[in-house]
C-alpha cells in the first residue's frame, strides 16, 4: 500500500475510533443507566491510552510496506505496555473509587491479554495497511467490550437492586473462536469469588452480538449459570 493510501486508511480508522469514544462516553451518561464518575474516568483513560497506541502504530507502520519481524516484536511490547500505562494514569487520581478500580482491572485484564495474543498472531510480511486495519478493527471490538465490562462492574457495585447481568459481545465470541479463551467464564468466576455479585443472585445474559454463540462457550456458560436462558 502506498503512503497516501495508507494515510487515508489510518485517518479513517482514527476518525472511527474517536467517533466510537464519543458514542461510549455518551452511553455512560444515559439517564437510565448513569455510570459512576470513577467508571467514566476509567473509560476516558482507556480510550486515551489506546488512541496514543493507535497513533504510535501508524508511525511505526508508515515507513514499512510490509510488517517485519522486528516491528511485530515492538508492537507486541507496546500493546503489553498499554495496561501499565492505563493503571499508572488511573493511579494519579486519588479520588477514584479503589474498589471499582480493582474489580475493573481484574475484569479487563483477560481481555487485554486476548488482544495481545491477537497481535502475536499477526503474520509477518503482510501489507502494513492491512495490518493496521486488522488491528484497528479488532481494537474497536475490544473497546466495545470494555464498555460492556465497565457497565457490568458499575452495575454490580453500585446498583445492587438491579438484576445482575453478564454481557456477551462480538469480541468474546471472536476470542473464543480464535484462541479458545472463555472471557465470560473468567469474569463470572471473578465476580463470584470477590463477592461482587450477591450469593444466589439471579443472573441475566445480555446479548450484544448477532453471531451464533460458539457451542463450547454456550456449554461453559450453561455450566456456570444453569438458570440463564440462552
Amino acid at each position: 500500500m502506498d503512503k497516501i493510501a495508507f494515510s487515508l486508511t489510518t485517518s479513517k480508522w482514527l476518525e472511527a475510533f474517536k467517533a466510537h469514544q464519543t458514542f461510549a462516553i455518551n452511553q455512560t451518561m444515559r439517564a437510565d443507566c448513569p455510570f459512576q464518575t470513577t467508571s467514566q474516568e476509567i473509560l476516558l483513560t482507556v480510550y486515551d491510552c489506546w488512541f496514543t497506541w493507535l497513533l504510535a502504530l501508524e508511525k511505526k507502520l508508515r515507513p514499512e510496506g510490509v510488517l517485519s519481524a522486528t516491528t511485530k516484536q515492538a508492537l507486541i511490547q507496546n500493546t503489553t505496555d498499554v495496561q501499565a500505562q492505563c493503571l499508572a494514569s488511573l493511579a494519579q487520581d486519588p479520588l477514584l473509587d479503589k474498589k471499582l478500580k480493582l474489580l475493573w482491572t481484574n475484569a479487563y485484564k483477560p481481555a487485554h491479554e486476548a488482544y495481545i495474543h491477537y497481535v502475536m498472531r499477526l503474520e509477518v510480511g503482510q501489507d502494513s495497511g492491512v495490518v493496521y486495519s486488522q488491528l484497528a478493527n479488532q481494537l474497536m471490538s475490544f473497546m466495545q467490550h470494555t464498555l460492556f465490562v465497565l457497565h457490568e462492574v458499575d452495575g454490580l457495585l453500585y446498583n445492587p437492586n438491579k438484576k445482575t447481568f453478564i454481557s456477551v459481545d462480538d469480541f468474546v465470541c471472536d476470542v473464543y473462536n480464535q484462541q479458545g479463551k472463555d472471557l465470560l467464564g473468567e469474569r463470572l468466576r471473578l465476580y463470584k469469588s470477590t463477592q461482587a455479585a450477591p450469593e444466589g443472585a439471579d443472573w441475566e445474559l445480555k446479548r450484544y452480538t448477532e453471531h451464533h454463540l460458539p457451542d463450547g462457550l454456550r456449554a461453559q456458560l450453561r455450566s456456570h449459570l444453569p438458570e440463564v436462558c440462552l
Binding site: T9, H20, G129, V130, S133
Partner: peptide, 18 residues
C-alpha cells in the same frame, strides 16, 4: 485499499447501545 477503507467506514457496527 478499498477493502481497508470499507472496513473503517463500517464501524457503526461497534456502536451498540447499552
Amino acid at each position: 485499499n478499498l477493502s481497508t477503507l470499507l472496513m473503517a467506514t463500517s464501524v457503526s457496527r461497534f456502536n451498540k447501545p447499552l
